[in-house]
Simulated assay, not measured.
Amino acid sequence: MKIVVIGGTGRIGSQVVALLRANGHEVVPAAPSTGVDTLTGEGLAEALKGADVVVDVSNSPSFDPEPALDFFTRSARNLFAAEKEAGVRHHVGLSIVGVDQVPDYGYYRAKVAQEDAVRGSGVPYSIVRATQFFEFIAPVMDMSTEGSEVRLTSTRLRPIASADVAAAVAGAAQGEPSNGIRNIAGPEVYGLDRLGEITLAAKPDGRTVVTDESAGLFAGMPDVLAGDDTVQVAATRYEDWLQRN
């Protein structure tokens, strides 16, 4: 199959490209750096010629509500117009577990709008919703650092390795459209503050974790980010991943 991966040079996309190529597919990584811009539509028609499947793992360059909403909705309009013109048979999108249950977080509202565009496109689809990536924990800690203290909420998360997310997305791309949502998560639930403690125990740098329910990106988040008993559980544990990275 010919599979076009939108965002194919990023953290998830590059791994999806590698997995699909290893399975013998013709894979086109599409990103502004390869001449494909979903915001303007530049390069889309050429990239999608003869494509069977489109995988969209692109992300907004901004987490602010208005720029994120503009990115996801404008990209979706251009992308689905090109997919219909090319006769694409399956669209695979990547989203976030619990995304439709956090209406007060503007970035999540933008992702919900993207999901709505997928469902309303008329192109057969599969949506993979993942929990927060392991790779996201250290940047969240850095953003929440004040002096030698890392101020984190106790928000429950069930983080997942990006490699496991890429494997799930690649698997969806090689299957039939589900016209539904698959939720995936890591094997264990932690408070964000506990994740910080585990990280600093493995990689001490002089900082300590302070639990502060008013601090950072996850302040005030409802308890929906760990998923429920229906999530499909990946194998990689955070502690094991830390030892290798």
Rank of each mutant, 00 (worst) to 15 (best):
R21K: 09
V224E: 09
R129M: 13
K203E: 15
L225K: 07
R151N: 05
E135L: 06
F71A: 01
V88M: 04
P67A: 06
I184T: 06
V128T: 08
S126P: 11
L69D: 08
Y108D: 13
S95Q: 06
Y108W: 14
G227A: 09
L69N: 11
S144N: 15
V17C: 01
F218E: 01
M1P: 11
I12D: 00
V165Y: 00
D116Y: 09
V28I: 15
E42P: 05
D104V: 10
D229L: 11
R182S: 14
Y125F: 15
A117N: 06
G106L: 10
V27Y: 10
R21G: 02
R109I: 05
G93D: 10
G186T: 08
Q114S: 12
A235Q: 12
R151L: 08
E115N: 07
P124S: 13
G206S: 14
E188S: 14
G10E: 02
D240C: 06
V55E: 01
E26G: 11
V16H: 00
I184W: 03
I6Q: 01
E83A: 10
F63K: 08
T208E: 15
F134T: 04
A201I: 05
A202D: 10
S95N: 13
Q174T: 12
M221L: 14
A166Y: 00
L217C: 07
G186P: 03
A173G: 02
V128Q: 07
V97P: 13
A168E: 03
G43M: 01
I3K: 03
